[in-house]
Write a protein that binds this DNA or RNA. Sequence first.
DNA 1: TTTTAACCGAGACGGTACGTCACGTCTTGTG
DNA 2: CACAAGACGTGACGTACCGTCTCGGTTAAAA
Lengths: 202, 202, 202, 202
Amino acid sequence: MCPVKALCIKGRPRDSKRESAIAEASISLIQEVGYERCTIEAIAHKAGVSKATIYRRWKNKAEVIVHAISHHAFSQTPSIDTGNLRDDLVELLLAKVKVLKGPDGAVIASIMSAANTDSELAKAIPHSVRDGESQVHKVILERAIERGDISPNANLELLAEITPAIMTYRIFMSQQPVNRKFIESLVDDVLIPSAQKIATNK
Amino acid sequence: MCPVKALCIKGRPRDSKRESAIAEASISLIQEVGYERCTIEAIAHKAGVSKATIYRRWKNKAEVIVHAISHHAFSQTPSIDTGNLRDDLVELLLAKVKVLKGPDGAVIASIMSAANTDSELAKAIPHSVRDGESQVHKVILERAIERGDISPNANLELLAEITPAIMTYRIFMSQQPVNRKFIESLVDDVLIPSAQKIATNK
Amino acid sequence: MCPVKALCIKGRPRDSKRESAIAEASISLIQEVGYERCTIEAIAHKAGVSKATIYRRWKNKAEVIVHAISHHAFSQTPSIDTGNLRDDLVELLLAKVKVLKGPDGAVIASIMSAANTDSELAKAIPHSVRDGESQVHKVILERAIERGDISPNANLELLAEITPAIMTYRIFMSQQPVNRKFIESLVDDVLIPSAQKIATNK
Amino acid sequence: MCPVKALCIKGRPRDSKRESAIAEASISLIQEVGYERCTIEAIAHKAGVSKATIYRRWKNKAEVIVHAISHHAFSQTPSIDTGNLRDDLVELLLAKVKVLKGPDGAVIASIMSAANTDSELAKAIPHSVRDGESQVHKVILERAIERGDISPNANLELLAEITPAIMTYRIFMSQQPVNRKFIESLVDDVLIPSAQKIATNK
DNA sequence: TTTTAACCGAGACGGTACGTCACGTCTTGTG
DNA sequence: CACAAGACGTGACGTACCGTCTCGGTTAAAA
């Protein structure tokens, strides 16, 4: 007999393998057909799972997607070390564009849809996205600090936020090209000056 | 008889008043109930128009919205003149946040939905958004140039693109707060250093 | 475990009460407003059922109606016994006219619409109509045989088919009156001679 | 000046060629695609005419069809003369079946639809159908009278009505076969006994 | 000859019903 | 209880056809 009533869960326990199957199915469906045509029924079928099993765990399509995204290992930008900050940043951004235009791009785009529908829950998503992204940023920037390429006044967090913001904006909203030329001007005209700024007159 | 065959339009001409009625109805519905609950039937009813009249012009709900947005006059940020660049920018960004969180915020958010579904046509949208936004930017920056506050090396277009990008990202995607503190650090740590950068090491 | 695989029905079984509710709703709507104004949505609403539930079972409005009709118990002509064949037949036909002009008339008329659209499935309908009709016929004719009023050469099935045919034709197609005078001449000039015919010269 | 006001018709007169073009287009569309898919727009297009021109003349689709049918020359059964009544009738009915199963069959079937929808106006239609059909009947029957094959008591009109009724019923409603065997039993067991009946016991 | 009024083709328009699709819930039998 | 299967109510979608209307342009009788 179960001594602690509240912990005594009767019946068949949930199979945790289902969670991951559903998450994987969701992501690959988004990559294949896009968010709009990624239906719950299709996810269920692809995951070899029934709809009830999905809705027993999450109350919404949005939450299903949120969970899938937040457990998705986004393709990582490779570690970069050219020896100087400027070229490190350019290479990093070029690598990021490649990711955003690859299969994970559709996933990122779907975040934006989900975010609109489900503003409350969408809050949780970008952490995972940002966390992954900022890792490489940090390495590059820390190396630059050691070299003395970056002013101690620099706002590193903000710098790490600007790049995904402007690239997402260009690629998914204004549909403008994000080529090497644009990236170089972004690095030379914004990121480097900001990283090297002398003092705040605040 | 019509002298120029190609110009001789047969049949009852489309009533352009319908187009604008539909566009207005779409926008105000998005503002009232959001993109998801803005149905074609509701638009038709509000515009005093039949569904057929809508689908005769656009093949999709997405295209209807795209058209509506691209013809929408977004609320403008007021003209600002504090006398110095830094405060101009802070005031400008504060005003923009207000807009993005007001009724037009829902409209902007809906752009992101439409953009996913309708990547081809979505290209046309942001022009209207950017064009409106960049106007005030230009005034502020030009005034700063006259005062000598901005280096001739500054990349003004890029500067004008960063602000909407990061604000949209924060508000609609990462759901992070966009308060005075954040805006000030954005201005002081990124925009000003970039505007005043001395030379390109390219 | 289900021992017989083929009989093991998975998933929630269809609720057969829905079928009958839909059929009843269809028939009563046809009786009330006629075939043309009997919409699927109205049927669904009257049956307390959703459109999807209807379209899950039948692929067409026509098939819905076909099913409804083929499960409808048409109002029966009462049993008749005047003691002689001639008057039995006259009374029977008068009773039938009454039925065809009553609520079931609209239903019979709708058969003709459905039959045009849905020639394949319409085959199934008239069984129900004929089966009900022929019952009373048989009783009358068998009694007449016992009395010796009918020649053993008579083609009883054909006789039983002529009356609904000519009455349907008159009422629904040529819109001619079907009054007592017409019925008497039909009985005296066609049915009785045919029933009493002496021999086939074939 | 026009002396009789009522007769004074100004403006471009209606082109009567349109009426026939519309009627022909209607009939051939019914023959090709059936009543259900014979739309006003298709008729207009096929007749090289605008919808307005159609609705200027008739207020309904039903009336358009009614007019077309009532001006349609149904394919005639050929004149028959085998020398005896029984074989004349059999040949006649076989010829009629052929007609009903040919292109005009669809037209006849459409009458039934129109009759249901438009009970008021449908009254006018069958005259044209019956008139054409009864012609051949009459010739055959009159010849039989001359030969003395038919009793002077026979109800010829009723006889002429039974055949189309039962054949229409079989072909379009109960979908039963109308083959030579059925036709012979109809002639031998019903038509001939009725035609030769000795006296009315009325 | 000019005016006038109805005709005509084309196709926009409001309306109504259709048949489809996805969501999220519910109901079976089975493990 | 979990689970697969799939029925169910709901509500929006996009389509099709009806019958009306509004254009520019034509045609024949009336003035």
